[in-house]
Design a binder for these strands. Structure first.
Lengths: 254, 254
DNA sequence: CGCGAGATTGAGTTCTCTCAACTTCTGTGG
DNA sequence: CCACAGAAGTTGAGAGAACTCAATCTCGCG
């Protein structure tokens, strides 16, 4: 019964076909203020050609950048999703995930090196912006500076909100629910359905991200499903009643 | 044997005497770029008088601002420390702590309302900046805009680093160690000793912040002390070997 | 079709929480 | 300065949650 209508839903289906992925619309991308033309002294300029490399393709499993490497580019996801991972005591730890429309690592703006690695969870397309060029243009054109400011402070708010959500919950069941709610919220921000989307990461990734074992994640998914807070079928997830989920998590996000 | 040299250590002793607290130096404050005079067209202007209210006093336990309230001011701590708390499912949850030199809630820059409350952990002094005025001046003077950008993106990096540190650890013992390491790093950033400082918050606050019970926090403190990673005496804390602690946590921060 | 990664399930162990008693610290009023 | 009350910190014991280990199942891909 499920899946009949999922063929055209980009959230469920991004880049699964090898041919042409569903790119996210530029106007939901967090970088869109930067990519829009600028009006200076009555003339309109488009700087993006100088610094934006659009839709760079990366294969599933490929590393986009590596922890410790020189940070010269800023990435935004056009299609597909990825995970951020860091080496902690010799083993890999999942720091976060990124979905279409989101920035990958805005922190690198004022950091010289990447503090984690980014790995494609599926075939993805990224827009890349040269950090140096962006900073140069921003320092010369106040309008761009202002927009960049908007982008960064919006990102700050998002990170803070996510962190509060995941951090504030004691029980593991609530933690997982909060994780899903956070994802839902982010899909909504990128113009997708917030009640039905695909979990592109493995259970192990989720477990690692939340600091739980994969078995616990599986069992709590089942428990949440039993309590009618989630419906999960493999990687397909849907939220029957988002208000119930929010009540359970204890935070009004959507 | 302890305490003989602690009388003049501001980290150990901020605002414990009722008379005059040890204010943090302006040049370690995260807002100092904003408070410094600006050069415009060959002339030097100091806007701070227009928008900065210096060293506003708050009593221990007092609320600086409240979750849901209108965010009109941005705060930086001049002396003392505070906790950020939010209401989750009817009960109070500790979101984070702030120490001298740090900004209290830079997120409110582009949010209309506070997403949590701030409560003084001891008698504190705060510098307040009017949000509106700051935004106005920033939009008119590129130099200020650029500095504000610097402040915000630095804050973004800090939050991200803290979140990564606390989020990335599986075991509770490592979680607490990471919390202490994070505090140490922040005290260092504010010009204090990173190996010896005071825990101004209660054990319950720490437990709440980390999602543990207060009993577990106490027991794990004891365990960490037994393993020579920490020395704890009431609220006084010292780190015998910070490299050992970092190795234990698995992240090189200092 | 078979391989391998990922997902699932069960059983036993370990860790953390809860509850309750008790001690210590702190601030206030006499 | 002392006594007292309330808050914070500490400790122990039993219950519950999450982890580990191991076996099995499923699905996508070559």
């Amino acid at each position: 019964m499920a899946g009949s209508h999922s063929k055209d839903d980009p959230a469920l289906n991004s880049a699964t076909k090898k041919t042409e992925p569903k790119y996210v619309a530029c106007d939901v991308c967090r970088l869109s203020p930067i990519c829009s033309p600028v009006n200076v002294g009555g003339h309109t300029y488009d700087f993006t050609g100088k610094m934006v490399n659009r839709r760079h393709y990366f294969k599933k499993g490929e590393l986009i950048f590596q922890q410790g490497g020189q940070a010269t580019l800023i990435y935004a996801i056009s299609a597909g999703s990825l995970k951020l991972i860091a080496d902690v005591k010799g083993s890999e730890r999942v720091i976060d995930f990124r979905i279409p429309g989101e920035l990958v690592d805005i922190c690198s703006l004022n950091e010289g090196i990447y503090s984690y690695s980014a790995q494609a969870l599926e075939d993805i397309y990224l827009c890349e912006i040269g950090k140096e060029t962006l900073n140069d243009i921003a320092s010369q054109i106040p309008e761009v500076q202002g927009r960049l400011m908007k982008v960064v402070s919006q990102e700050l708010t998002n990170i803070q909100k996510s962190s509060m959500l995941l951090h504030g919950n004691v029980g593991s069941e609530e933690k997982i629910a909060a994780f899903i709610l956070n994802l839902a919220w982010r899909y909504l921000n990128s113009g997708y359905s917030c009640t039905e989307f695909k979990l592109n990461m493995t259970r192990t990734d989720i477990a690692d991200y939340l600091g739980l074992s994969k078995e616990t994640v599986i069992r709590l998914f089942k428990k949440l499903q039993h309590n009618n807070l989630l419906k999960i079928n493999g990687k397909k997830l849907s939220i029957p009643n988002i208000d119930e989920l929010q009540k359970f998590v204890g935070i009004e996000l959507i």
